[in-house]
């Protein structure tokens, strides 16, 4: 199944990316070829096979619930593109 330009635009939107008109054909073609290649996985019989999301068996990494030093407010904001009163500033979200 071939990925279409509209699907690329849709997925890019989900990822909050903008694909400019000029590169859309090329991006669609490149991603289409990669996905086509990935389709070779359909040759593998995976009936009743559990998926693996993590190669090393580890379950429940617990820790004690104790108070420790963490980044200070100033440190956490030290890379903020815009900040005010100890908080990150973003464009207005709620209308009046």
């Amino acid at each position: 199944m071939k990925i279409t330009k509209n699907e690329i635009i849709h997925v890019a939107n989900l990822a909050r990316l903008e694909i400019d008109e000029a590169s859309l054909d090329k991006v669609t073609e490149q991603i289409g070829r990669i996905l086509e290649y990935v389709d070779t996985l359909n040759q593998v019989d995976t009936k009743n096979i559990q998926g693996t999301s993590h190669a090393i068996t580890l379950t429940n990494a617990f820790r004690e619930d104790i108070i420790k030093d963490h980044l200070t407010n100033n440190q956490a904001l030290s890379n903020a593109p815009e900040k005010e009163n100890g908080a990150f500033v973003v464009p207005k979200i709620v209308g009046r």
Binding site: E7, I8, V11, V44, I49, G51, T52, A55
Partner: peptide, 25 residues
């Protein structure tokens, strides 16, 4: 874009699900 597509509704099983099963093998 590839990752977002492969995880998006309707494609998850065909891509991520399938790949993680082959990873087991």
């Amino acid at each position: 874009i590839i990752g977002t597509y492969a995880l998006s509704a309707g494609y998850y099983d065909a891509y991520y699900g399938k790949a993680s099963q082959v990873r087991t093998l």
